[in-house]
Design a protein around this nucleic acid. Sequence first.
DNA 1: ATATTTCACCGGCATATGCGACTTTATTCG
DNA 2: CGAATAAAGTCGCATATGCCGGTGAAATAT
Lengths: 175, 175
Amino acid sequence: MGKTPVPLPLTCNNDALRKATRRLGQLFDDILQPSGLRATQSGLLRHIKQLNGPTMTQLADELVMDLSALGHTLKPLARDGYITLTPDARDRRAKRVKLTASGEAKVAETELLWRIAQTRFEAAFGQRKAEKFRKTLALLASSDFTEAFHTATKINRKRHAPGSGGKAETVKTSI
Amino acid sequence: MGKTPVPLPLTCNNDALRKATRRLGQLFDDILQPSGLRATQSGLLRHIKQLNGPTMTQLADELVMDLSALGHTLKPLARDGYITLTPDARDRRAKRVKLTASGEAKVAETELLWRIAQTRFEAAFGQRKAEKFRKTLALLASSDFTEAFHTATKINRKRHAPGSGGKAETVKTSI
DNA sequence: ATATTTCACCGGCATATGCGACTTTATTCG
DNA sequence: CGAATAAAGTCGCATATGCCGGTGAAATAT
């Protein structure tokens, strides 16, 4: 009884996300080309700079990336002399990822190109919209969302007894 | 003169997109695990079914994916007997990607799991919001957007002579 | 202080994606 | 028709990511 069970949206959220990622990757890579770095690598260096010599685990968390995946990804950058991996003094297990002088220079170089890409993106997509979009993406990437996702069960029928108040499962944009 | 040039959003749109993609990939992969397929593979098979034996180029276009990348990605699926690549009768250059019986079965199997993931996603994120999100992603993935991106130059100062009318560069959601 | 558990990272294996060079077919042009 | 060009894929190389099974070092429990 009740509403006809529409067979769920035919488009997979994950597929849609990947398509957009591939496309945007192309556009950004294209513009960053002169620097010799891919958009991902440029972003990686930017994060390293921003976090100021983070440990690999820290960096991986920030990037929502698997630790070992990060390790692999860092290799080319280390090989090309943009970063160094130095064991932490306090905790000899940890390794700090640091930009070399060459790395700093590269960041500065890509910064210019990156801004072009970023600007074009906002021009084509809309600045206001872009900001909201990024917030949404940040929400999806957050551990809060992961938690909500795991919590989400089939208990999707509208509740009557508002024990805790309104919309229960939907993640409140706590970003 | 004019407004202070805010140094552009510090967060890279591309980075944000990738982070969300990694996270969502995890969540979906996790749920699809019992099927032995990754979310990407499941999506791939779904697309093949939906397009009903497309050529590789067709499929690649649909997926916003590089042709050779698609070729690589298909290999494991062919090896495991879920698909076949048969040269087209009319054009012997083209290869049609088709689901085998086993492939069809796998699609059916993953369909169930996929729906769980999809449902959880919508529960955690909000159904309405998800729909809009997907539309936005589709826009970004569209060639329209790519065009707008390429067209977008530094000519971002507000124009006075409204030659063609309002907001010029921002892509009208033609999706 | 020692045994146990936890943490941080590495290495191997596998998929995901892109690029550029090369091969085979079609298409188009003169 | 024959040469030039375009189209569809393939292959090798390189990065992007993840999982799993070690290894060594810190933190905890006994």
